[in-house]
């Protein structure tokens, strides 16, 4: 039962990943790709948490924390660049 629920959750997250990947591929503007990049990072955090659960190791969660930091910093760097380069 629990396994089934985890499979279902992973399938839904994978579908979300593919949809956002389409937005990343299609664009059309840089800002659209940036928000898609942000959402991809956040979905990756879910993926990392699921992988940690499946492997049963808490140490993987440290990587997720670095990801959360990265998604914030990356968006701000690119936003400041877009703001300035006009």
């Amino acid at each position: 039962m629990v396994d089934l629920l985890i499979y279902l959750a992973a399938a839904l997250a994978g579908a979300a990943f593919l949809l956002v990947l389409y937005r990343f591929l299609a664009g059309p503007k840089p800002a659209d790709r940036v928000i898609a990049f942000d959402v991809l990072t956040i979905i990756s955090i879910t993926g990392i948490a699921l992988a940690a659960k499946i492997e049963g190791r808490i140490i993987y969660l440290d990587v997720a924390l670095v990801y959360a930091l990265l998604s914030f910093l990356g968006v701000i760097v690119i936003a400041r660049y877009l703001e300035r380069n006009l």
């Binding site: 140490i59 993987y60 440290d62 990587v63 670095v66 930091l69 910093l73 701000i76 760097v77 400041r80």
Partner: peptide, 22 residues
């Protein structure tokens, strides 16, 4: 004890400097 170490930690410290710069 856990994944990580000097290089990764150094990069995160540098990220905080980057945040100040931005």
């Amino acid at each position: 004890l856990s994944p990580g170490g000097g290089f990764q930690g150094g990069a995160i410290v540098a990220s905080s400097v980057l945040l100040m710069l931005l």
